[in-house]
Nucleic acid binder design. Structure first.
Lengths: 336, 336
DNA sequence: TTGTATGCGTTATCAA
DNA sequence: TTGATAACGCATACAA
């Protein structure tokens, strides 16, 4: 394989000028060239295995078909399906995804964004979890995933946390629970505060007071473990609504250590429906989030934004689904 | 924010020619310009917030600081840590990762590679699993992950499958098992054939014949489930070495359906040590692969290759670790 | 409908 | 050590 064919090679083979070839090869301007010559050019391109040099194109058009996808850590199981959804939507439109992890570190995020900005990216999908404003100018297209700015001036795609928590709370109440506690996620994440608020709201509308609320440092098993210990040292509860599945797993561990059975003694719920939580003992009752769809829709939104930057910033809220398994039991009779 | 500053702006501010500014700003050629003027230029660049236009640079140098990372499906839990390792190593060197999924589909892979090739990528990391040769010319830098070409002319990073399977087989034998079967992974993957061969070898060197070998269509729970049924219809075994954890999980399911207890009736082993297999019932005895390190080392190898294309193609084999949990029991007395 | 000319920002080559 | 110039491949304004 020698040097890749350029548009000039294609033009030469089709006996036209490079400009004509450019027009014929570009869907945008295809109609500015006669069908006959266009066909000849397309054929020549195919024959030569022509693939446009994106650097040259970017240099000329000041944009590219690449979008930056920024997440905290790919190893967090919620992100792979999201990123996959993003990638699929992007690819359907001929775009590519540039992936970067920030570990939730502001400095690393700034650094990454700076590096990416040098690449003439067409836009960004940000799935970092902090609630502060977007560290990008208004001249770049951005879609937020899993979080929103307080101002609401940036397009975003999130799952309906409130509806999910309400469904969980209602399920517990229907099972007879009245002493329900919450292991909240970090309060510098939008999901953390939204779910916490929904928990309080949900309880209040049913005339119940929370049995306790403990905030976790992180969405991790360890944090869930620690918070459960703290929570149960201060209060007793027959049910615990965990901020997400990881926290719920930590809760499982702490419960076992305290000699409490789940769900016989304490019911536990999660959030996210991560892979394999159906295989836990007990299988976790949780809320399923359409991760893939979130990613897919986010990319669609970004593409839309790129095409029409003036379009109003949509905020998409995707429905969630209650997944009942075995970690919720009817409240023990001795506790009623 | 107006138009980003160009090297011309920097040059103007530093009262030098653009070419000089270019030399001063490029670490490679920094020493070709006097320290005094260099300092002036660097200062001007800083003041203007100059960030080189990578499209222009790529156009000129015919390369970029971006590498393509191609995997079958990010949702397969083995890939996130690998990709994360790749990204970390890349970032340390100022490179970015362009991610694409192929679903193991040859057409989709070809398509993706073609699209990526237009991007002047510095190289590729291929984690697709087929054993056929690399669909890329010899002019591009490539490192394979999780597989190798038969010819061995392409650098690669893999885990030591053989050592892992041998450890598993020896463990089972030490527990008294003699009727050991294998649920092999797909035989068009290098891991599938390597582990199968290691299984047969391991057994043979201990003077044992396999109780049965069933090949799975895919590395999936469903395939493991089906293969287990087929296997146990044809033979009986007290231990099953699954091609990987997913297959082992499918095996769990089939065993339960057949009224067989694990590990009391049948011992099962996995491969990979995916997240959460320690939480299964029973906790899975498996082999841990250094996923992150594999990705990290693959990226290092690629960077090395990019810097020195003539360097010999290294083949890295990373050590694995036997993780003993509860899915392996001493062989039932009635079976000895 | 097609061809001509030009410039995007950078770096390599050559000359000074 | 620095400056001038050209070229990378493409897309577009303008001319024909």
């Amino acid at each position: 394989m020698d040097k890749p064919a350029t548009i000039k090679d294609v033009a030469e083979m089709a006996r036209v000028h490079a400009a004509t070839a450019s027009r014929a090869l570009n869907p945008q301007t295809r109609d500015k060239v006669s069908p006959r010559t266009a066909a000849r050019i397309v054929e020549a391109a195919r024959a030569l295995g022509y693939s446009p040099n994106s650097a040259a194109r970017s240099l000329r058009t000041r944009t590219s078909s690449v979008v930056g996808v920024v997440i905290p850590d790919l190893r967090n199981p919620v992100f792979p399906p999201i990123v996959r959804g993003v990638e699929d939507a992007l690819r359907e439109a001929g775009y590519l995804a540039l992936l970067g992890n920030t570990d939730g570190d502001a400095a690393r995020e700034r650094d990454l964004l700076a590096t990416m900005r040098g690449q003439q990216l067409a836009g960004f999908i940000l799935a970092t979890s902090k609630r502060d404003s977007v560290p990008l100018g208004p001249d770049v297209s951005v879609v937020l995933v899993n979080r929103r700015t307080d101002a609401g001036d940036v397009p975003s795609v999130v799952a309906d946390s409130s509806a999910g928590v309400h469904a969980l709370v209602n399920l517990l109440i229907a099972r007879g629970h009245t002493r329900i506690a919450h292991l909240a996620g970090p309060q510098d994440t939008s999901t953390g505060v939204e779910r916490r608020r929904a928990f309080l709201d949900g309880l209040a509308t049913r005339g119940l007071a929370p049995a306790g609320v403990e905030v976790c440092d992180a969405y991790s098993e360890q944090a869930g473990f620690d918070a459960t210990h703290k929570l149960l040292a201060a209060t007793s509860a027959t049910a615990i609504v965990a901020g997400n599945d990881m926290i719920a797993l930590g809760c499982y561990g702490a419960l076992a250590e305290l000699g409490l059975r789940c769900p016989e003694d304490v019911s536990v719920t999660g959030f996210n429906d991560m892979p394999f939580v159906d295989k836990q003992r007990p299988a976790l009752t949780t809320v399923r989030i359409p991760h893939y769809d979130i990613g897919y829709e986010a990319a669609r939104l970004l593409l839309e934004r790129i095409a029409t930057p003036s379009s109003p910033p949509k905020r998409l809220v995707l429905p969630v689904e209650l997944i009942e398994r075995n970690s919720v039991a009817r409240v023990p009779l001795s506790d009623t």
